[in-house]
Simulated assay, not measured.
Amino acid sequence: MQPVPRGRPRPLVGATALMLALTLSSTAVLAYADLLPQHLDLGFDLDLGLFEDTAPAGLPHVAQKIALGGPLSIVAFGSSSTEGVGASTPAAAYPARLEAGLRRALPHLGSKITVANRGIGGEAVDEMLARLDQDVIAPRPDLVIWQTGSNDALRGVSLDHFREATEAALERLRAAGIDVVLMEPQWCPTLDATPGADRFRDAVRALGADLGVPVIRRSDLMRDWIGQGRLTRTELFASDGLHMADGGYALLAEAAQDAVLDGAEAAPVALAEAGTD
């Protein structure tokens, strides 16, 4: 098959996709839209036979699963903030709270939404990349939320190495057909006292902007939660001055949920492509 020039529609491949395009009526698809929260207006362009050969905006795989009724699989990948160090129980960590929140927000998917916690405390970028295949790519999730950058700053990892390794991993995730949301380092007393820590926060933001990957700006959010009186410092931070406490994880889960739903809303949904593998 000859390659199709970028920017031009390309035909669907595979008999399964063709059958789905022929049998999935616009009425049936739009019925799913009625089940979505008002926050999420997918606004389909129901050109079921074609899609653009360009890098998709938003979170297209998540949007497809929401539109077609799931299942929706998410991997929360990162270090201690993902594992839930500082939380009173595993259920109070942000991944478990995110799963519960998305099930409430998308009741037509309900238990078909899963969020796997693949956080390991203390890891920097090289340790995370060593398990990227096993913990993230092999399970073939629709979305990975990657929290990164905190331990790299604390351990003196080269900023250039962090950027290059993270960018290479993001490209691998995209090549595997996985949507990605990045989560930047936290704001906390320990990182405030670490020279150059803000450069890792800025590097995560820059990678997101350069590659079109949504970024949860956790540092700004945490400052806002204090400034707006939503949490006290005791409710936000664990006693070690580095990790979050239950109150912080609860609001972080809300921010992650917003990122997922906003990313799905921003994505053009190629519904017929959902039948391909």
Rank of each mutant, 00 (worst) to 15 (best):
R6I: 13
P9A: 14
R10Q: 06
V13N: 13
G14L: 01
A15L: 15
T16G: 15
L18W: 10
A21F: 06
S25I: 03
S25E: 06
D41I: 00
L42V: 00
L42S: 00
L48C: 02
F51A: 01
D53E: 12
T54C: 15
P56H: 13
H61W: 02
V62W: 00
Q64T: 04
Q64L: 08
A76Y: 08
S79C: 03
T82R: 02
G84Y: 11
G86K: 00
T89R: 14
A91C: 00
A96I: 00
A100C: 09
L106N: 05
L106K: 05
P107K: 06
G110T: 00
S111A: 14
G121A: 15
G122Q: 15
R131M: 07
R131W: 02
R131Y: 09
S150T: 10
G156R: 14
T166R: 08
R172L: 07
M183R: 04
P189V: 05
P189G: 12
L191I: 12
T194M: 06
F200W: 11
I216A: 00
L221A: 07
M222Y: 05
R223K: 11
G229D: 06
T232E: 13
F237I: 13
G241L: 01
G248K: 07
Y249T: 08
A250C: 02
L251R: 15
L252K: 04
D258A: 10
L261I: 07
A267G: 07
P268W: 05
A270H: 06
A274K: 08
A274I: 15
A274Y: 15
D277W: 12
